[in-house]
Amino acid sequence: MIADDDWNKDWVCNMETFENVQIRHAALEAFCSLVLQSHGASESAAAACARALSEASLRGVDTHGVRLLPLYVQWIKGGRLNTSANIKYSKVAPGLGVVDADGGFGHVASYRAVNEAIVLAKETGIGAVAVHRTSHHGATGTYALHGASQGFVTFGFTQSGPGVVAHSGREPFHGTNPIAFAVPLEREEPVLLDTATSSIPLNRIYLRRDTGTQLPEDVAVDQEGRMTTDPHRAVSLLPLGGVEYGYKGAGLATMVELLCTMFTGSAAAVTLPALNDVSRGQPSPLGHFFLVLDGARFRGMAPLLEVASSLVTKLRACESVAGGQVMAPGDPEKLEKMRRSETGVLVDRATWLRLSELANEKALPVPATLA
């Protein structure tokens, strides 16, 4: 278990920094749900989406947190999200299932898929569920955590619209195509790997535009395919690994896309609309894929937890370079969750203005900000 003195809480890990307002997590989640309901989402769909967005913001994953809410509202207005979706699940074989999201919220479909995969894993030891006719679901790690928090080793994959150049290419071909992997631990939240197969998430470009901060070196290119750190000029990302080793990220992106299209019939990323395309007029045929393992079937739950927790403890104990701190996957987000649970969730000023406009449009109460 992580104690407060296990980390230097003043150490700044790889989180975004920006001028912000601070809002209690519960109030922010409730507000997001109200906004979505006011635009036609059912109470259950709004709650699932609000939960996923607010939890991402609570963990410091600001690129995939509440800043996406105004975009989703635009999608609803433009017909890209079906607020009346009738989500259906079919078991197609022992250990295999399919969720038809009917063009609705990817968050609802993804929670449903993991829950159904857990049912399958309880029966057979393994559950794989493909999701088709779905939409953007926020942070993929949200759903891996959902499964691992119930004691199951959980993988999550999703494709996305083109925003990443092929290795040695000039034009967008891949989506950011994240991979998430979570394993339960003893007496603390699961260990979580949640990473795009691109150099950075595409949403980080949009966040940096809003916060007026430059991009890192060697992660993005402009319209002519030249490297840029200007988020306003950046149009595409490099695969994970950059110029020299981007074949690694491009290969992983291809793997994710195959998992999310072969079993779902979803379209290739290069044919999908961009994330910020609000004029689609109809849902996009996106795909997700989830794999859940009942790890206790191998040697029992106690040995699984012991090995996983021991490995994470040894990793954290590694000697660090000056000014650094060795962490396990997901530790920066755990640390940020500790901070934000105490001081409030950080919302950048541009996003706060958009959220306030959404509230005013529907005469909804704006959540109180903290000092």
Rank of each mutant, 00 (worst) to 15 (best):
H137K: 00
V256N: 14
E333H: 09
A109K: 02
D210G: 15
T17R: 15
R80K: 15
V35Q: 00
R316N: 14
A52G: 07
A85R: 04
K314M: 10
E189V: 05
A371E: 11
M227A: 15
I23K: 00
G169M: 10
G79A: 12
L364H: 00
L36N: 04
L275T: 10
P190A: 13
L71A: 12
Q22P: 02
S310N: 03
D10G: 13
G175T: 05
G161F: 00
A328H: 06
S57L: 00
V221K: 15
L335D: 00
D10R: 06
V129L: 14
A109S: 15
L120R: 10
V278K: 13
I205C: 04
A350Y: 00
V92I: 13
S356Q: 07
N8A: 15
G151D: 13
H107Y: 10
V129G: 02
D348E: 14
R233I: 03
Y89I: 14
A182L: 02
A253H: 07
E336T: 10
L36W: 02
L259G: 03
L120E: 14
G212Y: 11
Y206C: 10
G141E: 06
G141S: 02
E116K: 06
G40D: 05
L202A: 13
Y111G: 05
K248E: 14
A128Q: 08
A46F: 01
P184N: 15
L36R: 01
G344I: 04
A128T: 05
R112W: 05
R226P: 10
A47R: 01
E55F: 07
H174W: 15
L353K: 12
F290S: 01
D210T: 14
L71F: 04
A139P: 07
L293H: 06
R59M: 11
Y247N: 08
E244I: 14
P303L: 06
T134Y: 03
S284K: 01
M262Q: 07
L291D: 07
S44G: 02
L305S: 11
G104C: 04
S135Y: 11
H146A: 09
A250F: 11
Y206E: 14
V366S: 04
A296P: 11
P273R: 06
G97P: 09
V278R: 11
Q214Y: 05
E257P: 03
E224C: 12
K91T: 07
S42P: 03
R226H: 15
G40C: 09
C13Q: 11
M301V: 09
A302C: 11
V347D: 12
R316I: 02
R354S: 15
S135Q: 07
I87P: 03
V35P: 03
C318D: 08
D102K: 12
